[in-house]
Design a protein around this nucleic acid. Structure first.
Lengths: 341, 341
DNA sequence: ACGCTTTACTAAAGCGATTTACAACGGGCT
DNA sequence: AGCCCGTTGTAAATCGCTTTAGTAAAGCGT
């Protein structure tokens, strides 16, 4: 196998200078048809492709963006990343995906990649509370970072969230309308914006209905199935049991379902359940899961578009966009059992 | 914000040559503690990081691998890619993920990236029949490609598959043992190895039980929920209905479930169902889905390990490894209803 | 005091593109 | 004839790092 053709080889074959080839290929030089044809033929004959690294070094651009997600094998993030990837690839950028596994060191490492020029910009999706280091890194790279889905307190970057408070409110309203009053909430970690806001919506709906939640009705967990399964135990230890549960994400709802199944508690007959995310699979769960649907595609798309625009020179501006959510009713909610007094 | 520090700045500050800095940092030069400390301090003071593109150009390595999946937002591929990513990152490589959306042009484009040096190696996961172009590209880049999960006919590369035939056989045996005899199969596309092998296992099990499948019992679809939902219609048009269905993947089984639900057909009471993949979510479906579990993590891990080893100079060798599968029984299989004659 | 080895580094040549600045040439105008 | 200008290019610098091939100085044995 012969060495890969370089621009010099093409130039030699087309009997012009490398400069001419480069400029002609990149559209910076008009040449008579005959010369153009010679270059075109040489490129074809040698199957020439500009060397990625050399080009990047010269241009000072990586033509790539990074996406940091807590875990790419989580369907929600896979969906989000998939959409962002689609947008980025369409505009000629490569996409490097990192699973941070919620380790802040891994997230910080991605910023090193950014500084080192591996990528031109970063789409950041976190899942946990920042200790200040992330925010500092984000501020240090203005115009290079877009935040999606979950806030990083004190950061300054364009960000795209959903209406978490309203979603929590709607979910809880829906349960109240079905006659529930003992409505527990198992949500994301303390200190995380989405968890705080969703819980706030839950409280507001309860309060409007004249219900005062007991402290133990609110359980904190992580937005993953395993931890949620573990922490859901606290819900099932309540006496009396809640008649309904608002889960802070669909993954958390999956944890609740797992735990309910283990204990022979039927959903929705014994306990009603509402999730948050609106994953496509919800339709097929047992039972199909009522959930607050997020516009996942929009989050990914708009985040990616904004990042690419900034990379291409759109002025840096700190915006915080809220995208709407929507209640999707399925079969995991029913009226509570009649209680005996 | 000042310009990023270069190796020259570090050298100046540490009062040595750039060569010394480079070699010392890369472990190619032993220096007295005092000099080392000066460099270390300079690096820290300037917050120096080697420029990614320059380093790559110099070394002739991208320190990155690519992963091509049909669709990253499909949970199976997300799981696979996630595991491969973990391995690659652990060895200091970046991971570029492409969703091919089963368009062969997009897959070919990834090979251009490989040739252009954007990445050092490619982990290829396809889902469809090749027209020969993929195989040719793979052959043209020996030692740079590893194939996972699905064969590319005529390619020459290390590959990791699962025991599809045995899986199909086991799934069908399981149904036969429950008393089923009218067992249909809806599987992946014609011409795709996994689909052919799984169907072969299905046929063998039937044949051993003295059952001759009718032609219409075998429906072809794609390994995605949407197409499977559409094509499952053919199964429900059969008269008499099959009492059991072996689906070629869990996504296909999801399609069957969707269609059954629409028609008010109960699983497993009216029809039993077995899937293939063993996705974690199967536990929580309605009903929990019996399935042939693939060692997804192993596929991703071993594929990535092999690719990295080849990049690091392990001799190129065409191997085809088969990983074992395992029947995981859940609630989607029951005995067939008694028939009236 | 001489040559040899070891220590502690460095100069300069790449890597393969892009880009800036400039040059040769022919033709039209005055 | 001399000048200008558009066309058709080219030479050389640059991006920031790695790496090959050395060199200067110190140490050491005899």
């Amino acid at each position: 196998m012969s060495r890969k053709a370089t621009i010099g080889d093409v130039a030699k074959r087309a009997k012009v200078s490398p400069t001419a080839v480069s400029r002609w290929l990149n559209g910076g030089l008009e040449l008579p048809e005959a010369t153009g044809a010679r270059i075109r033929n040489a490129v074809a004959a040698l199957d020439y492709q500009p060397h990625a690294q050399a080009r990047r070094l010269s241009k000072g651009k990586a033509e790539a963006i990074g996406i940091v997600v807590p875990d790419i094998s989580n369907a929600f993030f896979a969906l989000l990343a998939g959409e962002a990837e689609r947008i980025a690839v369409a505009s000629g950028h490569d996409v490097v995906i990192w699973s941070s596994r919620n380790r802040i060191e891994r997230e910080l490492a991605c910023f090193d990649r950014l500084r080192a020029g591996y990528i031109d910009g970063l789409l950041l999706i976190t899942n946990h509370e920042d200790d200040g280091r992330l925010a500092e890194r984000i501020r240090s790279m203005p115009g290079r970072v877009v935040i999606i889905d979950e806030d990083v307190v004190g950061s300054e970057a364009p960000s795209f969230f959903v209406e978490n408070e309203f979603g929590g409110y709607e979910a809880t309203r829906h349960l109240i309308e079905h006659g529930h009053r003992r409505i527990a909430h198992i949500g994301g970690p303390k200190g995380v914006m989405s968890a705080i806001e969703r819980a706030r919506g839950w409280r507001r709906a309860l309060s409007e209905a004249g219900i005062t939640p007991e402290t133990q009705w609110h359980v904190f967990t992580e937005y993953e199935v395993e931890p949620a399964t573990r922490d859901a135990v606290q819900l099932f230890a309540l006496d009396p049991l809640p008649t309904a549960i608002f889960a802070g994400s669909d993954a958390v709802a999956l944890g609740v379902m797992t735990q309910a199944r283990r204990r022979g508690i039927a959903i929705p007959e014994d306990i009603s359940l509402v999730g948050f995310d609106g994953m496509p699979i919800n339709d097929l769960l047992g039972p199909p899961l009522t959930s607050i649907a997020q516009p996942i595609d929009d989050l990914g798309r708009r985040g990616a578009e904004r990042l690419l625009a900034m990379i291409n020179g759109e002025p840096f501006e700190v915006t915080r966009t809220r995208l709407p959510v929507e209640l999707v009713t399925r079969a995991s909610v029913a009226a509570p059992r009649k209680e005996k007094f």
